[in-house]
Design a protein around this nucleic acid. Structure first.
Lengths: 88, 88
DNA sequence: TTTTTTTACGACACACGTAACAATG
DNA sequence: CATTGTTACGTGTGTCGTAAAAAAA
């Protein structure tokens, strides 16, 4: 699991499709597909059900989403604080 | 910034040297050095002062450490919860 | 001089985009 | 058949460990 994986996952989750997630991520469908599969592999289970027009998150997907958002927010905050902190 | 970067940073921070961080990370000195430099580059400033026997974290380093620990804990918790969640 | 950190480097794995294919509705 | 997701594939970048150099103590 990487931060990029989470970013792609969030984009897919929020946009409701892999196609639309390509805009949010600035990438292409094959990469979105690949990232999500990565994540599903490393977490041991599907995050989305792909049998509907609008992507259906599984329970695992829903659980992950909340944490993923928090992690991303915390990383942004960490980056901000570190940049702000003076040297030495 | 990647999760691996944070893992290396935490190891260096807690062990007090790059050398000892190799044990915690299961890697070699050159990689620890490289990871920390990555992080310092992407965050725009030094995280450690390297002029003392025991690695001296800078203010930026100290700020980062707290967040890094929290992020890692949250990732572990996320992973645990997702694994526990039943399919579908 | 001993210990720690950095740099140089070759090898391998990862992540990208294009394009062809499959599946869904 | 129109749209979305996946697979195949070639290419470039990232990350690894070894080994040599530099810096610190």
């Amino acid at each position: 699991m990487t931060i990029e994986d989470l970013r792609y996952f969030i984009a897919a989750y929020e946009s409701g499709s892999f196609k639309s997630a390509t805009q949010a991520t600035g990438s292409v469908p094959s990469n979105v597909s690949w990232r999500i599969r990565n994540l599903e592999g490393s977490l041991g289970g599907k995050l989305f059900e792909r049998k509907h027009r609008r992507l259906q998150p599984t329970r695992k997907g829903m659980r992950l989403y909340g944490h993923a958002k928090t992690v991303m927010a915390m990383l942004a905050e960490a980056e901000r604080e570190v940049r702000l902190a003076r040297e030495v």
